[in-house]
């Protein structure tokens, strides 16, 4: 069976990472920013697991990716709670409106 090799996986991961970064930077909807974070974390995870198969990382890569997934879920829950709280107070989810401390 032909093997794909490491580099294609790394490129896919890089594309995911960059899309996530651009999402985080340009989206004004708070939930859109969250989705950007998820994409970034997924790019990192793909890297970890690709290295765990093809690189020197061995099984550690998978274990670390496991922790990343769990922490990402926790992060999403907390961030969503913050967004809901923000929406309750300001009736918007536009992150540019969050500048109460910037007066």
């Amino acid at each position: 069976m032909s093997d794909v090799g490491l580099t294609p996986y790394l490129i896919v991961a890089a594309v995911l990472f960059v899309c996530g970064i651009v999402c985080m930077a340009t989206k004004r909807n708070a939930i859109g920013v969250l989705m950007g974070v998820e994409l970034v974390l997924n790019g990192a995870n793909l890297n970890l697991i690709a290295f765990s198969r093809y690189g020197q990382l061995g099984f550690d890569g998978q274990a670390i990716a496991m922790f990343v997934i769990v922490l990402a879920a926790a992060e999403a829950a907390v961030a969503l709670a913050i967004v809901l709280n923000f929406y309750n107070n300001h009736l918007t989810v536009d992150v540019d409106q969050a500048r109460q401390l910037n007066s």
Partner: peptide
Amino acid sequence: GLFFLLHADFLGATQLLIYVGGTVVLL
């Protein structure tokens, strides 16, 4: 799917369950 291709089947299933089934539904 890429995780499954990299022989990390537990992580692939975790990804489906937690990200797609959990986090995105939450979002």
